[in-house]
Design a protein around this nucleic acid. Structure first.
Length: 495
RNA sequence: GGCGGCGUAGCCAAGUGGGAAGGCGACGGUCUGCAAAACCGUUAUUCACCGGUUCAAAUCCGGUCGCCGCCUCCA
């Protein structure tokens, strides 16, 4: 079974064939560190994190590079505003970025290069482009000459003639043609700068990714990713720079993720409609965020709202209530659990257990089809329903139930790990939720347990009026009671 | 204006040639003192609209309408 990936270059799903069959090399454009990351950045990070995890799950060795842009106009502007140095701003937000990634359980990439650490690579590549005749130098500036690179527009499917006629490009009297873009720009006084054959200056935005991807992954590699908004001009320009410098095919597969929207409008700092990762994680937990984002196909937009977040949150809680119950059940079976006895199952049992027994296969089929995490998550729900049925209807064969539960637990652990879901200890997860929501609740835990005890007394005395009065009072404080065989449990309805 | 995407139930959402996944909600049932949770069942004769290709279309082609993105920094 082979993986298929939608390739922006061809606008089709293609079989994935890495250049070196077992090794996959992937480069993803990270963030410019001038402010806190918002949930849109989080989505991109999570999607490529899942792609990284799945490629490893499939048995590939993966070298994953995600860069940090730590020198840029926006960083310099912010430094000027705060009357400090650009590197102070960059360091601060690199720290925040790492904190965000850790909180979202995004694995660290193999390499996380920074533009400022690769200025010599950048200068070498610019020199090569000048030598090859694809770039020109004027007044301390170096530009890439778009019309020299014939395949320009291959990724974004734009025509160079139309771009030449366009007006929406950064104006610069030293450019020969409007779509030409800066490889090197001279520094203004007081700005961070590096010496170069063209004077003191700093790199243009696009060249850092060409230089760093080549440095870590070679002239040609397999996957290049980023948000849709990077298709043009950023990735188009990277192709031009890299291929003009090396003469080789730059990248096999370009993968682009869709946006997070707010009221159906792209979330962007310039539009002032962002929600930061940190703000979201104050309200909810990492796995809820991952569940919400991964319940949509990575190329489609996701509307981020309180409602969708709460829905995911409740689903996450239900999954963990199930996992907790599975854990409890399995602890009462201390012996070694046999494998699921396939041959002992009737065809009727097989078909009703199919969502469980065939889960790993289904999961892989979904993920192989262009990382269809939404479908894969649907299969988790199907499996959960079967498990709840087993737990509440043990059936005749006493050894069958536990071996099925053990099998399911493995699935939640192993396939869940690909999505970064179901990785917490159920008791700890549910406990944390309770703690978090208690902070927002208007009652203290002691008060709640005291009321539950009082209600129990009332129930034993068959004083249903008093019992219901207490329950209604708790519901009005967002606390739901569940009377079970082991007594009364409580949980927070919504937070 | 150019390029690209989307329009599937009350809401969210997967599905790109031959059975309309899944979640939320709603309704009925089992369980319960009553609930909650869980389970069972019902909830799209039809996929924005119109036309075409095909034995067969949500899916392919053409057109119309609506929404969004990129074309300037952007995940």
């Amino acid at each position: 079974m082979s993986l298929r990936i939608y390739n922006t270059l061809t606008q089709k799903k293609e079989d994935f064939r890495p250049i070196r069959p077992k090794d996959v090399r992937m480069y993803v454009c990270g963030v410019t560190v001038y402010d806190r990351c918002h949930i849109g950045h989080g989505r991109a990070a999570i999607i490529f994190d899942v792609i990284y995890r799945y490629l490893k799950y499939k048995g590939h060795r993966v070298v994953y590079v995600r860069n940090i842009t730590d020198i840029d106009d926006k960083i310099i502007n912010k430094a000027n505003e705060e009357k400090t140095e650009a590197n102070v701003i960059a360091e601060r937000y690199i720290y925040e970025l790492h904190e965000d990634m850790r909180l979202l359980d995004v694995l660290p990439p193999t390499h996380e290069p920074r533009a400022t650490e690769h200025v010599s690579d950048i200068i070498a590549m610019i020199q090569k482009l000048l030598d090859n005749g694809y770039a020109y130098h004027l007044n301390g500036k170096v530009f890439f000459s778009v019309s020299k690179f014939k395949p320009y527009g291959r990724l974004s499917h734009k025509r160079v003639e139309e771009l030449l006629a366009g007006t929406r490009f950064e104006p610069d009297e030293d450019k020969r043609e409007v779509p030409d873009f800066a490889l090197w720009k001279p520094a203004k006084p007081g700005e961070p700068s590096w010496p170069s054959p063209w004077g003191q200056g700093r790199p243009g935005w696009h060249i850092e990714c060409s230089a760093m991807s080549t440095r870590y992954l070679g002239d040609s590699f397999d996957i290049h990713g980023g948000g849709r908004d990077l298709v043009f001009p950023h990735h188009e320009n990277e192709i031009a720079q890299s291929e003009a410098a090396t003469g080789k095919t730059f990248v096999q597969y370009f993968v682009h993720n869709g946006f997070v929207t707010n009221e159906s409008v792209k979330m962007a700092k310039s539009l002032g409609n962002i929600v930061t990762i940190r703000e979201v994680l104050e309200q909810t937990d990492c796995e809820t965020v991952r569940l919400l984002l991964l319940s949509h196909h990575y190329r489609s937009p996701v509307d981020f709202s309180h409602k969708t977040l709460m829905e995911s949150s409740e689903n996450m809680e239900r999954f963990y209530l199930l996992l907790k119950e599975i854990g409890t059940k399995l602890r009462t079976f201390p012996g070694k659990l046999a494998k699921v006895p396939d041959e002992r199952l009737s065809s009727e049992e097989k078909s009703s257990l199919e969502p469980l027994l065939r889960f790993p296969k289904r999961f892989e089929q979904a993920m192989d089809d262009d990382f269809n995490t939404a479908l894969a998550i649907g299969y988790f729900y199907d499996m959960a329903r079967v498990l709840n049925r087993i737990l509440h209807n043990p059936g005749d064969d006493p050894s069958l139930g536990p071996s099925l539960l053990a099998f399911a637990k493995d699935c939640f652990e192993k396939q869940g790990a690909v999505l970064g879901l179901f990785q917490s200890d159920p008791e700890a997860y549910l406990g944390q939720r309770k703690e978090k929501s208690l902070e927002a609740a208007s009652l203290k835990e002691g008060e709640i347990t005291r009321l539950i005890e009082e209600r129990d007394m009332a129930r034993k005395a068959k004083n249903w009026n008093r019992a219901d009065e207490i329950r209604d009072y708790l519901v009005s404080h967002n606390i739901v009671l569940e009377d079970g065989p082991e007594g009364t449990r409580w949980r927070i309805k919504e937070f």
